[in-house]
Design a protein around this nucleic acid. Structure first.
Lengths: 348, 348
DNA sequence: CTGAAAGCGCTTACAG
DNA sequence: CTGAAAGCGCTTACAG
C-alpha cells in the first residue's frame, strides 16, 4: 500500500505539503501543487493510514457500541441508528455483544481503549453489580480523560442516560391504556431485578397503577429473564400463583413474545381471554399472531442521537441529556376484558 | 493514559524489556524483572496502544463484516457468529450496513483498508454490477497484498464463497419436500435478479422441479426485492397472473413473511389453501402464525467459520473452501394440497 | 506557499 | 538476559 511518502515523491513535493492537501485542512497550498498531489494520490490508489493518524491524535475514528446481543432486534436497531449517524463523518462502528457478562463487557471496553476509540456507547442497561461497576467506572474515566466520548442509552450505575427514553412514563402509559380498556387486574413481568432499566419499568408499572387508582397486587408481579423463555415461564408462574388477572403487561417485547407462545400452547385465546402487552416495539412485534400491542421506542433514533451526542462531546460543544418520546401502540393482543369474556362464554 | 515508557520507568527497565514482557512473547526475561514490569503495568492500569502496534505490523486486530443491513436477522446472526469466534483472539468486529449500495460498500471497505483491518468478511451476496465489482476487486487485491484476509460467505463476482452454503441444494430439497406433500404447481419468489445468491436459489428451484419431474411454469416465477414488501407484492402479482399454484416457495424468509401477511389480509388460509415456504430460518420464522416451514442455514456457524477461515489465512495455514449443510424444517405453513383443499370446500 | 524535523507509542534487529 | 536505536506513516509547530 502506498504511503504519503510515495505520494509526495511522485508529486515532487515534501510529505508536509502532501499531508496538507490529503488532510483537507484549510492550510494554504498553491492550486497547481495541490492538483499534482491529488493526481499522485489517485494514481497510487492512496488510502491514508488511519493508524498513523490515530497514533498522533490518540484517537481512531471508530465508535464502539456495547450491546447485550446483536441478534436481539432491540440492539440491532440501535446499532443501525449509530451506523447511519456515523457514516457521514466516516466513523466505523464496532459492535460488542456482552451477553450482560461483566467479563466480556470489560474485555471489550479494554480493547476499545487500546484502539483509542473516539467514542463508546453503552446501548443496554447497567447492572447492579458493585464490583463490575467499579471496574467499568475506571475504564470510563480513562476513556474520557483521553478525550473520547462515553454515552449511555439506558440507565446505568453512574446515573441517567445522556440520551434515553422515559421508561417509567412509557410503561405507565401502557398501564393507563389497559385500564382504559377496563382491566383492573394487570399482571407484570418485570425482567431481571438487577437491571436498572427493569427497575425503572417496574416503577412505571406501579406509578401507572397508582395513577388510575389500582392497588398493586404483589402476587401478580414476577421477575424473569429478559427473553422469550422468561415470558413463557412467567405465564406458568402466574397461573400457578392462583391470583386472578386479565392482562399481562411485559417489561419488554421478548417477554411478551414468550407469553404469546405459551398462551397459545395452553389454548388460552389472546385477547379474548387474556390481553398481552409488550414494550420496545421491535420489528417482530407487528408480525406475531395476534399482533402485539406495545410501547414504541424510537430505537434507531436513539442510536443516531447517541452518536450525535458523542460527536458534540468530542467537539467540546455544550451537551444536555435528552429524553426521546415513547408511544403506546395498540394492536390485536389487547382488548376489553368484560365484553370479550362474555363473547368467549357464548362460544363455549 | 500511561505509555510503555512510563511502565518501563516505573519498573526501572528499558522500554525494550517492558515491551517484551507486555507483548507476552517467549523472549527470555528474568522472572524478577518480569514481575516488576507486570506490577508497574498493573499500577498504572496500562493498556497497550493498539494503534502503535498496528502501525508497526500494518495490521489492526479488527475484522470488518460487510452486511446488507444489521437489522436483518440473517445478518445479525452471522455477525454474532463472527463476534463469538473473534472474541478469544481479542479481535473486535466492525459491522458495515451497506444497504446493497455500491457507494456505501466501497466507502466502508476503504475505511477498513485505512484502518488496516486484519480481515474483511463479505457476509452478503455479490451483485452483478461490473463497474462496482471492478472497484471492489481492486480493494480486495490491495487488502490481500497487505497481508490481510478476505472471506466471502455468499456467492460473489469473483467466484464461490470461501465458507458458504449450498443454496441450490437447499432450495431443491424444499421443492422435493413440497412435491412429497403432493404439490405440483409450486410458485417461486426469486428475489433480485442481480444478486448472485438469488440466482443460485432460482437455479435450485429449477433443479428441484426437474428432479421430481415437474416442468417449470415461468408464469409463476417472480423476481422481487429481498424483503417483506417483495413477498407481499409477489402474492399480488402471482394472483393477478391467473396461473394456478398450491404453494409459494420463497428465496428467503423475509419474502415468506411478507407472503404470510398478504395472504392473511386476503383471507387465504395457510396452509389449508396455500402452502408457504421460506429459506434461511431466521429466528422469527418459528414465531409467525402459522409457523414458517423453511430451510435452516447455520447462520451463526457461518460467521464463526468465516472468521476462523480468515485467521487461517492470516497464519498462512492451508485453507479449503467449505460448504455448510442446510436442513429442511417443516412447520405449519406447509401442508398437503389435495386433502386440505377438500376440507376447505367442506367448510365453505 | 513550501519543507526539514520532531515525535506519537510501540517492536525488533543489533550489540553487549 | 538487557538496552540503545531505528523506524512504522503520519501531522504540525517552526523556519524560511
Amino acid at each position: 500500500m502506498a504511503s504519503i511518502t510515495e505520494v509526495a515523491r511522485l508529486a515532487g513535493v515534501s510529505v508536509a505539503t502532501a499531508s496538507r492537501v490529503i488532510g483537507a485542512t484549510d492550510y494554504p497550498v498553491s492550486p497547481a501543487t495541490r492538483q499534482r498531489v491529488l493526481d499522485a494520490a489517485l494514481a497510487l490508489d492512496y488510502v491514508p493510514n488511519a493508524l498513523a493518524r490515530g497514533l498522533l491524535k490518540s484517537q481512531l475514528a471508530i465508535v464502539g457500541v456495547i450491546v447485550h446481543d446483536i441478534t436481539d432486534p432491540y440492539f440491532s436497531e440501535v446499532v443501525r441508528g449509530v451506523e447511519d449517524a456515523a457514516a457521514p463523518g466516516e466513523y466505523l462502528v464496532i459492535t460488542c455483544s456482552s451477553d450482560r457478562d461483566p467479563e466480556r463487557e470489560n474485555a471489550h471496553v479494554r480493547l476499545l481503549r487500546s484502539m483509542r476509540a473516539a467514542a463508546v456507547i453503552f446501548a443496554g442497561s447497567g447492572m447492579d453489580d458493585p464490583e463490575h461497576n467499579a471496574q467499568l467506572g475506571r475504564h470510563i474515566d480513562e476513556i474520557r480523560a483521553n478525550g473520547a466520548a462515553v454515552v449511555h442509552l439506558s440507565p446505568h450505575a453512574f446515573g441517567v442516560p445522556e440520551v434515553g427514553v422515559d421508561n417509567a412514563a412509557g410503561i405507565a402509559a401502557m398501564v393507563a391504556a389497559l385500564a382504559r380498556l377496563g382491566h383492573r387486574q394487570i399482571a407484570f413481568l418485570a425482567g431481571p431485578p438487577s437491571l436498572y432499566v427493569a427497575r425503572e419499568r417496574l416503577a412505571g408499572y406501579r406509578r401507572g397503577l397508582a395513577a388510575v387508582g389500582i392497588v398493586a397486587n404483589e402476587d401478580i408481579i414476577r421477575h424473569s429473564t429478559f427473553d422469550r423463555g422468561g415470558g413463557s415461564r412467567g405465564v406458568d408462574e402466574l397461573l400457578a400463583g392462583g391470583a386472578e388477572f386479565t392482562a399481562i403487561c411485559c417489561a419488554n417485547d421478548l417477554l411478551a413474545l414468550g407469553v404469546l407462545e405459551r398462551l397459545a400452547e395452553l389454548g388460552i385465546p389472546v385477547s379474548e381471554r387474556m390481553s398481552v402487552a409488550g414494550f420496545d416495539d421491535i420489528s417482530v412485534a407487528s408480525m406475531t399472531a395476534p399482533a402485539l400491542s406495545t410501547v414504541r421506542l424510537p430505537l434507531r433514533e436513539l442510536g443516531r442521537r447517541g452518536f450525535e451526542y458523542a460527536v458534540r462531546q468530542l467537539n467540546d460543544e455544550p451537551v444536555t441529556a435528552e429524553l426521546l418520546p415513547t408511544e403506546v401502540v395498540l394492536r390485536d393482543s389487547t382488548g376489553v376484558p368484560g365484553r370479550v369474556l362474555a363473547a368467549t362464554k357464548g362460544i363455549a
